[in-house]
Design a protein around this nucleic acid. Structure first.
Lengths: 116, 116
DNA sequence: AGCAAATTTGCGCATACATGCAAATAAAGT
DNA sequence: ACTTTATTTGCATGTATGCGCAAATTTGCT
């Protein structure tokens, strides 16, 4: 692998580019709302609770959560007939940080970047 | 806007969720390769140069670059008949960092997470 | 067993996206 | 003017994605 960006995200089975999978999971307004809700909650929320905040059918919410879960961004815990989801900080935070550092290490034109 | 996650990414015209647009731009293996190439280059690269590293047609590369450009992740500069692209560090790096902090502030149950 | 609640899954549909190819621009060079 | 080079854009196509609705599944209650 000549491309560390591709490998930044260690999750996602045997995919070609795990990082792309991570960003795909984050690339939807509804999923961002769900993540934000989980962030606010500072803990677990059920599918029903989560579905209150986004204007789509509950089945859709369930699918979105499954997607986030598969991307290892959130965790699920089943208690009785309800399923509780919670945000999983790592390795999300570390990956984003690493990415930020990689980006800023470059185009940060300390000098010598004579543009137009 | 009750959702800071949606507003984290200030670019992208009048879109509903700029952050989702940002991640959409990053959610493709080819585009990640291009970004990595620009990172390595530590400067500008032309479309032709960029297209060497990813296995798709040059026209596709051009489209991907346009997408990254519209997402304000890269900048373009035209010199003669060639167009040079370069990575734009900000606000990408800041946004990723902010996101990482938001995420780690929560599920990191180390201590001090005394919520509101 | 029978019923109700919480969640997931199958299906169909509409829309978005990535891609290659060929044509269109744009800018030089002859 | 004609030709060559660099890049973009139109078009067609196959594939992925988000959605609602209804049915299936799982679990708890009586």
């Amino acid at each position: 692998m000549t491309n560390p960006l591709q490998a930044l995200w260690p999750c996602c089975a045997g995919e070609e580019s795990g990082t792309a999978e991570l960003f795909s999971a984050l690339a939807d307004p509804t999923r961002l709302i769900l993540l934000w809700r989980l962030l606010q909650a500072q803990g677990e929320l059920s599918v029903s609770e989560l579905s209150d905040c986004c204007g789509i059918h509950l089945s859709g919410v369930s699918r979105h959560l499954a997607q986030l879960r598969q991307a290892q961004i959130i965790d699920a815990r089943k208690e009785g007939r309800t399923v509780f989801y919670r945000l999983r900080a790592e390795p999300l935070a570390s990956t984003l940080t690493a990415l930020a550092e990689a980006v800023s290490s470059q185009a940060q034109p300390s000098e010598a970047t004579t543009e137009t």
